[in-house]
């Protein structure tokens, strides 16, 4: 069987202690929450940390807080618990749907919100055993210097976390702590387009919570994951939309996100031009096409990027329609 490389497991019981341990061990240490992403990657020898700092014994990370005008979701909350949370299902349906679409039931029970937010990017050439990657000649993201997808010097491994698109359209904020203290970062600034490491977390920093403002009255949002199988898989494409109509039926807010393309989950730009109009078929079509323009799938996940690209407007349209029909 595939075995884990050796490491020391440290189990701090407070955030301070965890930060201290991460600082102390520096580049030798990695944090581990649910482990459903990190441990397979370690069995593949993609990471060989000398120290793992476990975050599961830190109660502060486990809270789901209703702050009145916003939700504060602890990074250590299991995905399934959030997906099944009645308040979240009602208030942030696209997020609840997305978290309910992660992997299989076990992964959702073990995996955490913070873990999913920080999920390592994925690629056909990367998420494989050491022996396989050796036969490949390795790749840019790990142990090699060639990108087998794009051929360039930039890693295009795909953001494959189901949580990112809904968090983008809900304009959530990431609460981070680290050696330099606490800071916040909007999710839309949390990722950058580098497949080798696509988050803006600094060394020794941890995601503590996500803060999601409760959408204004009348906001509707929806999520769709294009997948090969009914469970235990990663997305071929992830999409979320959020919109709001005023009392006359005019579109007053709109956002859409598409992910599982390259390293950065893509918050679609230029949608403001559609505001102020009453949505009809033509408008829905136009929005969907706009989303398609910025979405260029690659061969990092599946061998038919053309089909995946064509699916963007199809599902964006359906999501918009779901929101308008709601």
């Amino acid at each position: 069987m595939l075995r884990l490389p050796a490491f020391d497991l440290l189990e701090p019981t407070s955030l301070e202690e965890a930060l201290h341990l991460l600082a102390e061990h520096g580049g030798d240490a990695m944090p581990i929450a649910g482990g459903t992403d990190l441990l397979p990657n370690m069995k593949h020898e993609l990471f060989t940390p000398k120290v793992l700092v476990s975050l599961t014994s830190i109660p502060a990370l486990r809270a789901i807080e209703d702050l009145g005008d916003a939700w504060r979701l602890g990074a250590g909350c299991p995905l399934g618990e959030l997906a099944n949370h009645p308040g979240l299902q009602q208030s942030l349906p696209a997020l609840a749907e997305a978290l309910g679409a992660v992997g299989g039931p076990h992964h959702r029970r073990m995996g955490t919100l913070g873990g999913n937010l920080c999920l390592d990017t994925r690629c056909l050439y990367y998420n494989q055993t050491f022996q396989w990657r050796e036969a490949l000649g390795f790749c840019l993201k790990k142990d090699g210097d060639v990108c087998h997808v794009a051929g360039g010097r930039k890693c295009v491994a795909a953001a494959s976390n189901d949580s990112a698109p809904p968090l983008l359209v809900y304009d959530a904020t990431v609460e981070i702590v680290g050696p330099g203290g606490a800071r916040t970062l909007p999710v839309r600034e949390f990722y950058h387009p580098d497949g080798i490491s696509n988050t803006r977390l600094e060394d020794g920093e941890l995601v503590v919570a996500l803060r999601v403002a409760k959408p204004s009255q009348g906001t509707r949002a929806a999520f769709h994951k294009l997948r090969r199988s009914g469970a235990i898989d990663f997305p071929l494409l992830n999409m979320a939309v959020s919109l709001r109509l005023d009392e006359r039926g005019t579109l007053v807010a709109l956002s859409a996100a598409v992910s599982a393309l390259a390293a950065r989950p893509n918050l679609v730009k230029g949608l403001d031009r559609f505001l102020g109009q009453v949505p009809d078929e033509a408008l829905v079509e136009a929005i969907a096409n706009r989303c398609r323009r910025g979405s260029v799938p690659l061969t990092n996940l599946a061998t038919d990027p053309e089909w995946r690209r064509a699916m963007v407007p199809v599902f964006i349209k359906r999501l918009l329609q779901r929101c308008l029909d709601a």
């Binding site: 490949l136 000649g137 060639v146 009914g230 898989d233």
Partner: peptide, 22 residues
């Protein structure tokens, strides 16, 4: 290809078999 003859994905993740859900 860079690695001719290499299996596309020798795992139950990359070689999916149907789950109870579908």
């Amino acid at each position: 290809h860079a690695a001719p003859g290499l299996h596309l994905g020798p795992s139950l993740l990359d070689y999916p078999i149907p789950t109870s859900s579908e």
